[in-house]
Design a protein around this nucleic acid. Structure first.
Length: 574
DNA sequence: TTTCCTTTGAAGCTA
DNA sequence: TAGCTTCAAAGGAAA
């Protein structure tokens, strides 16, 4: 959401972070973000179970009432115990699950990138500081850069026996593209070492390539030829986001080559003049930007041939096919999602990305404005880097690369029809009341999200108007159909006010994902201001002073949801 | 094997 | 310019 600075720039926007997702009747203090997150997960899981179990028989209210009971007492107890113990442990560990530490922004904190190490080989304080930042451009899979306090996978969660990559990945690891440290000839300082505990032996070990950041990963082939230093570049979660084709590193000691090229990369990125796009889609460093992928949507690293260019002026169809697919830079939420996904997965057995994404979306909204601002800034940097690496690239280039979704091929579907469809589909991942309240609790984030990253940076304060969507009763409705926004556009146009159409009944689902329905959930930033400001929003954002606002918002939020929440939750039966 | 689902945000497109 | 669409990640589920 565009930062409305008019209001004095102070954050009216950070309200949502103050709104914790609580179970019905839960009034106790928000113990910790972890706990609430755990609850979210639990709720989501429970709701999923409930929905499948109660799919066709129970009414919304019934289900809502019954829902808490579906959770066995024992399980609840254990979960609660786990929550607290986990929260306590994490606090003791330094609060890994506290908001990630982003003391500043990389470009502001690079005192001496060319010589990060002290004479004794230790990382200089300045360099260390830099490394702890997220460097959007330089992706250091070096999860090892993670805060030393970060728990190792082994103790992060006892629920997940397997190594959870993200756990030893620095929160912003995805953005750390390259680090001198990682490409230095020597072994990284112990405190930055990517060591992780072997789940079996408990002995620290060098993480497997697959456990490292996927952001700028090497191709499997490259991996095999590169020793430790480049291990930092290994994919984290199987599928590399950005791959380096074989031959990407031609230097016998890629680490050295990378190290040498680092300064040029850094300087080029932040020097006044732009860097001309490297040939073959490779950066000057010889490492392609993560966004470069082969022509296929999900492409393999080896698909990229040296002959491929990031962008050719007038490519023929054939050439176009061969041309590497330059992915869009990740936005703030995507960066956050990449970072947190593994954590969410680790915290629960839930594996479905759709469900996880819902949780992540809620968490995202629960983040403080400052925390979100960090991601926005990182995303901005990422875009900046992307634009520098691929000056001619446009998001349009990727249009049509994906196969059109079926729903897109239903132009004549009427809103009514659509709603029907949505009812059937939305159920699957809908966590019930929890999900419903999530939008309400979250609206702030979108409000907070800067229209432009720079704006957010300049004034992180969130626009007051945006808050409006908070506490929107309508937000309690369930999500109809994924991708709804595509369909909703019809309804939105017809109704003029999305809220009216979607809110009409509990059955009709509003989609948090629906852009046209933002007024309901307030999930999208940009258009919000133009839309009617909900009463709640006025109440929350306009009338409440920034500081007290959090409290007010929280209270309002709870009051609102306690008064009318679950009834609005609809269950769509398949 | 392909597409869907789900999330938010950025950018492109359209009227 | 407002509003809508597409794509970005991820991985299980469904077709």
């Amino acid at each position: 959401m565009p930062q409305l600075n008019g209001g004095g720039g102070d954050d009216l926007g950070a309200n949502d972070e103050m709104i914790s997702f609580k179970d019905e009747g839960e009034q106790e203090e928000k113990i910790s973000e972890n706990v609430s997150a755990e609850r979210d997960l639990d709720d989501l899981k429970s709701s999923l179970v409930n929905e499948s179990e109660n799919n066709s028989s129970s009414s919304d209210s019934e289900q809502a009432e019954r829902r808490p009971q579906t959770r066995p007492d024992l399980e609840s107890y254990e979960k609660a115990r786990d929550y607290f113990s986990e929260a306590l442990r994490r606090q003791q560990d330094g609060g890994f699950f506290k908001s990630p530490h982003y003391p500043g922004y990389p470009f502001l904190m690079i005192p001496d990138l060319s010589n990060p190490y002290l004479s004794n080989g230790a990382l200089s304080p300045s360099a260390r500081t830099y490394l702890q930042m997220k460097w959007p451009i330089l992706d250091v899979p070096g999860s090892g850069l993670k805060d030393s306090r970060s728990p190792t996978p082994g103790h992060l969660s006892n629920k997940v026996p397997v190594v959870q990559h993200a756990h030893h990945v620095h929160p912003l690891t995805p953005l750390i593209t390259y680090s001198n440290e990682h490409f230095s000839p020597g072994t990284p300082p112990s405190h930055l070492s990517p060591e992780i505990l072997d789940p079996k032996t408990g002995i620290p070990r060098t993480p497997h390539p697959s456990e490292l950041s996927p952001y700028y990963p090497l191709s499997p082939g490259a991996v095999g030829t590169i020793a430790h230093p480049l291990g930092w570049l290994m994919p984290q979660q199987g599928q590399p986001m950005y791959s380096i084709p074989p031959g990407g590193f031609r230097h016998p000691y890629p680490a050295l080559a990378m190290n040498a090229s680092m300064s040029s990369l850094v300087s080029s990125r932040f020097s006044p003049h732009m860097v001309s796009p490297p040939p073959h889609g490779l950066h000057q460093t010889g490492i392609p930007h993560p966004a470069i992928v082969s022509s296929g949507i999900k492409q393999e690293p080896h698909d990229m041939s040296p002959s491929m260019h990031a962008k050719s002026p007038v490519p023929s169809k054939k050439e176009e096919d061969k041309r590497p697919h330059i992915k869009k830079p990740l936005n703030a939420f995507m960066l956050y999602m990449k970072e947190m996904r593994a954590k969410v997965v680790a915290e629960c057995t839930l594996k479905e990305s759709a469900a996880i994404n819902q949780i992540l979306g809620r968490r995202w909204h629960s983040l403080s404005r400052e925390e979100q601002a960090k991601y926005y800034e990182l995303a901005r940097k990422e875009r900046q880097l992307h634009s520098q690496l691929y000056p001619g690239w446009s998001a349009r280039d990727n249009y049509g690369k994906r196969k059109k979704r079926k729903r897109d091929n239903k132009p004549d579907s009427k809103p009514e029809d659509f709603s029907i469809r949505s009812k059937k589909q939305c159920v699957q991942y809908l966590p019930s009341e929890k999900m419903c309240d999530s939008p309400a609790s979250s609206h702030s984030s979108m409000l907070d999200s800067p229209a432009t990253p720079s704006a957010s940076l300049a004034s992180p304060a969130a626009p007051a108007a945006t808050h409006s969507e908070q506490a929107q009763p309508l937000s309690l409705t369930t999500k109809p159909e994924g991708r709804m926004h595509h369909h909703y556009s019809l309804a939105g146009k017809a109704s003029g006010s999305s809220s009216s159409s979607s809110s009409s009944s509990s059955s009709s689902s509003s989609s948090s994902s629906s852009h046209s329905h933002l007024s309901i959930h307030g999930s999208h930033s940009t258009p919000i201001l133009s839309r009617p400001i909900p009463f709640a929003s006025l109440h929350h954002s306009m009338l409440s002073p920034p500081s007290p606002y959090h409290q007010a918002a929280l209270h309002s939020h709870h009051a609102l949801f306690q008064s009318q929440p679950l009834s609005l939750v609809t269950k769509h039966n398949n």
